[in-house]
Write a protein that binds this DNA or RNA. Structure first.
Lengths: 224, 224
DNA sequence: GCAAAAGTGTTAGGAGTACACCCATGC
DNA sequence: GCATGGGTGTACTCCTAACACTTTTGC
């Protein structure tokens, strides 16, 4: 392997994360606004160049922290994007991650060293993004739908307690379809993922709903 | 983005493919022997450095062709490997692919410009490989088991015609478990993937078996 | 005629889906 | 007391898994 070989000199790796949340039944994605070239002024997904001294996932988490202030987020790799011209500066291959977080539980930095803004965008109101990030986002959403049925990714949206109707709303928002209340309860409870807290609280309805929490240890299980 | 920034200068991308076949019920993987440093003399999966002027999948196919002579192989990306020290030369991130091919239908180049040998290895007799390729192979095998149940990947193993007992043997070899003959037939035939050729031939048994072929257009369907 | 593999049909259990009624609360 | 959403049970369907006997051929 020859470091000077022009055929593969000057390549780099992007680590990019699509971070999702659900607010009032609306699925939203976190975008940041660039304040450097290329794509100055454009919104993009959180991410940037991988450093030589860090593993992929750590690079992705570092970028999230630097550009939004979010720490302690679980992310999962889901695809790679490598079109020859996806970056105008040099050949970059992007490793893409998905994360889910409760937007109420985090304080997002609006401005950072390399971004001028950050905000949650409903997924049907996402502007044209820099690089190939619209394409990445489309794939990320498909992946989110796949992942949500293997359950554990949602744990981060509900660290404390929640009612089953609330949980159902999130599933419906992400899967973009209505689910039967009875069957949903049966399924979730039978999977041994959540436990009754004994408390109740009101969500949307008039009758207080029982509150549940995710069990400490939960296995990956199919929900649908 | 600064091309000279030491934090991410001198990175590269590997495109690596685990190519599988099944011979007499044994799942085998194609390995090539290196004749350059690093890992001179070691067996590895087919692959190498991505060029700047090619997309990921084309790079993977070019590497396959250069090192084995195999053309026209369908491959699917399944994971990325990016540990900091996975290459001793410089920081390399590996994008990994899976392919399946009928070993009887291809002539493999034993020696090429950068390899001194190539051969099929039963997956339980794979030697220690160069780089992190043992780790990649383990993940590739898991992925192969997942993919085989979504059917179309096997089409390349059976371009012409085959009996259902033969097909079943391949499933059993890759999934590493016995399947019920009656249920297997029922499942495969009900999926509308194969059609009767009208011919019969002997495979293992004494009684000739009906021969089938894959239909031209087949959708991705779950087999199990 | 017998060994060896190919071909075939039925049944029981589990999961998913569809569906209707009562309950607790706020106003 | 009525409107609103929360909570519950049952029946039907479909898919899966288990299982035994007959057929064709080579020797």
């Amino acid at each position: 392997m020859d470091k000077k070989n022009k055929l593969y000199k000057e390549q780099g790796v992007h680590v990019i994360t699509a971070i999702f949340t659900v607010e009032q039944g609306i699925t939203k994605v976190l975008l940041v606004k660039r304040k450097n070239e290329p794509f100055l002024g454009d919104w993009i997904l959180t991410g940037g160049a991988l450093y030589n001294n860090e593993d992929l996932i750590n690079g992705a988490k570092r970028e999230i922290f630097e550009k939004t202030g979010i720490k302690d987020i679980e992310i999962e790799q889901f695809d790679v994007f490598g079109k020859v011209d996806r970056s105008p500066v040099m050949r970059m291959v992007a490793v893409a991650y998905i994360g889910v977080i409760d937007s109420n539980k985090v304080q997002i930095l609006r401005e950072t060293l390399r971004t001028s803004n950050a905000d949650w965008f409903p997924i049907n109101k996402v502007p044209p993004l820099g690089y190939d990030h619209n394409e990445i986002l489309v794939e990320a959403l498909k992946e989110l739908q796949k992942k949500i049925v293997s359950s554990t990714i949602l744990k981060s949206l509900f660290p404390t307690c929640f009612s089953l109707p609330e949980l159902q709303k999130v599933y419906e928002a992400i899967l973009d379809k209505k689910l039967d209340r009875r069957n949903f309860r049966k399924k979730i409870l039978s999977l041994d993922l959540v436990e009754d807290t004994g408390d109740t609280a009101k969500f949307e309805g008039k009758k207080p709903a029982k509150l549940y929490r995710f069990k400490k240890k939960i296995e990956e299980k199919k929900v649908f």
